[in-house]
Amino acid sequence: MDLLLSSISQGLLWSILAIGIYVTFRILNVSDLTVEGSFPLGAAISASLIIKGVAPWLSIIIAIIGGMGAGFISGYLTTKWKIPPLLSGIITMTGLYSINLRVMGQANITLLGQQTVFRTIEGFGLSKTMAVLLVGALTVSAVILFLHLFFNTEIGLAIRATGDNNEMSQANGIRTNLTRLMGYMLSNGLNAMAGALLAQNNGYSDISMGIGTIVIGLASIIIGEVLVRNLTIAKRLLTIVAGSVIYRLLILLVLELRVDPQDLKLFSAILLTLALRLPIIQEKFASRFGRKGLPKAKEME
């Protein structure tokens, strides 16, 4: 039972990463790999500030700002300098590896015995798992509420339009370089926030903790999308949270089946592949049996 609850709480924290990736991957419609650098950047900033005595919550805010800076660099490289998105993400992520080492001053920082946001809540008499559940639920709710409001503002609409249709956006006077830049910053701010929270939860920050985060995030997104199709943003984000939790539960299951933890990344990769393949197979079936396919196939008249 405790393992289950712990997986769920982990899923909540990881869902912030998935939501961050969703902003670039689905809303902006670009594949941004910066996350593999901005996630550990958030962890590095938070951990190194905490051991210097900075309040844990403040370290998260500074981590978010750092992540937005990373997003700014990738965004600038693609929008202004016209470097393809995939490459600018790789450039930033590679550069961040060195920066993260500098931030931490070493390859990892342990937070054993240090104050974290979770310990603060435990201080009110909650168990560790319950504290993580509570903090996870609160932060995820706040993030979703914020994004729901933001993506319905004038600027938010403009960012969504940019990812949907660049030509149309420019034709409607949207400065698409700027909107895309904002999306990158928002996305990587969230990624860094997830990194900070997970470092505090796991009790350490490690230079290699970014590896595979893109796969984890995408898998959560796709699982959420397979669950329910065509939703408004807020509801979609909720399904991503569900996707994240399901992903953690699958990991738990795999570990319970005594799979070597070393093979987890392989498992993640296979899971993402299947999750990506599933919608395509569903569609094939749908068309074979003459049912109506996805609405996107409705370009007629």
Partner: peptide, 19 residues
């Protein structure tokens, strides 16, 4: 949402509610 975007064509977009 599409119409609201068009209504803002050439104007500054802020953090006000989009529609």
């Amino acid at each position: 949402e599409n119409l609201a975007l068009a209504l803002k064509r050439g104007k500054k977009r802020g953090l006000g509610y989009g529609i």
